[in-house]
Design a protein around this nucleic acid. Sequence first.
RNA 1: GCACCCGUAGCUCAGUUGGAUAGAGUAUCAGUUUCCGAAACUGAGGGUCACAGGUUCGAUUCCUGUCGGGUGCGCCA
Length: 571
Amino acid sequence: MSLLPLLNSRFAAALSAVGAPDAQPLVQAASRPEFGDYQMNGVMGAAKALKLNPRELAQKIIDAVDLAGIASTLEIAGPGFINIKLDNAYLAAYVETALKDEHLGVEQSPAQHVMVEYSSVNLAKEMHVGHLRSTIIGDALARVQSFVGMSVTRQNHVGDWGTQFGMLVAFLIEEQQSGNAELALKDLEGFYRRAKARFDEDENFANTARDYVVKLQGGDAEVNALWQRFVEVSLSHCNAVYQKLNVLLDDGDVRGESFYNNDLPIIVDELREQGLLVESEGAQVVFLDEFKNKDGEPQASIIQKKDGGYLYATTDLGAIRFRVRELKIDRCLYVVDARQALHFQQLFTIAKKAKFAPENVSLEHIAFGTMMGEDGKPFKTRSGDVVKLVDLLDEAQERAFALVSEKNPGLDEATRREIANAVGIGALKYADLSKSRTTDYIFNWNAMLSFEGNTAPYLQYAYTRVKSIFRKVSDYDQNAAIVLTEPAEHALALELARFSDVVHAVAKDSQPHLLCAYLYSVATMFSRFYENCPVNQDGVTNASRLKVCDLTAKVLAAGLNLLGIKVLEAM
RNA sequence: GCACCCGUAGCUCAGUUGGAUAGAGUAUCAGUUUCCGAAACUGAGGGUCACAGGUUCGAUUCCUGUCGGGUGCGCCA
């Protein structure tokens, strides 16, 4: 069992035994190392409820709690904290067990069907930096959910529908007629810009574009084929980015807005049948008392425009309905910019009221802040343009290549490229994932690639140091008992044993930065261990320590893999 | 106008359901290599947790107000 649930359950039993069955144990990792490994904070609250002296109650709990073989010391401190030091033999056994476990000790949850909606690009344009956070946060969360035993569906809810696609198809026809179509599609961004320019300046073209939207939605074969062609090209651009980013999304995860097109009239009907829909200023809307507009009146969510068209709220409702009824999801994580918070609050409220999703299905907006430039304003090029994502990734790899070449000029170029690609992308992703996602953060090339501090390169380096120990060892006794004696060994083993708790916290709260902080701590503990506890020296191998190293390498690799970051055998 | 997010060391950021003396990294300064990778490690200085009240054994955390920053609020997605 994971450490935290184990300690909490043992203390809960002890609290019951001393007459405080309703009190929470409130066990947490010790806030300071000198307090031990864990601390139990629940005594003060329980003592207050029972009108007892907290330190006396703490002593009773220590007498009652069954932590034989788990804790070596339990001490009362301050107003009534109980400080817990885990037994070295227990930690040694934990490491032993985790080493043999494919999940490295991470407890498996009862399988639920979890959907993670992320990336969700607009296929009309090329991916830009605005898509980075959703793509990498969502990917990490999907990996974490899988790792704790969930059945996971990744969903790339791409924008492949709406008025702009009529414009793009119309322009594609023009380009085909002049024989430039394939070439033009290679630069999707330019294609969009030129199509938009045509749309704005030429009334005839604009009318054609509008006409094509109608034909597209009406199922016209020729227009649909052109649309399909455009979507394929755009998705191939995305897939190239996903591969470079080491993100697991592929074509099988794509279910675009167009997929729900035929359901939209049904959504309107069902909302109307349930008495939720009202006509207002010609549009079909749902009024929600929970939300007020700027006049203090109930906020309207528009479901159908007065011209009969639908909006993205309608599509999102259709998606919820489909996911619940057809895909049987239990939980859906929407990894989307924080600026859409209100939209999701309204969406989820309507979905529950309309019974598109029952109460026990969890719909969660996993909001994130904006990536800022060093001036504290949204990240742009020097000239103020939006940065294409592929350009950002290329720059990360180029910068990493320059650094690797500086550090290791002796390596051949292909090797340096391979290292640089993993380091550059890893640094970029880690810099993002290691911040708490809800707030804006400032993007800084030097900080993320500095190879010092809480960065991906530091973690990747720590991994290569562990692996290099094994390269020095030809053979060792894999059945040797693990014996922990030094403080640095204890600290490292304790950190390794916390893996399960941390991964579960990330799965529950969708906060990848907790995993980053944890891995950084593992790497730090390993470095201290490495300085103080020789593993393989003067031809003598310490098999016990080597096994601790083995788990360290496995946890670092697994943890970084959950973040979508590659490890290297050498760098 | 209303709603949501935010304000913590020079800078970048943590701080888990309220817990002990508010922590990391970076930068600065000072150390460590006949020793498994120094892309490392050790140490030092650095704080009115925006401000003012309140709740309580205890508040960076919860509540109220003020100031400051960001975002959103009916026919785009």
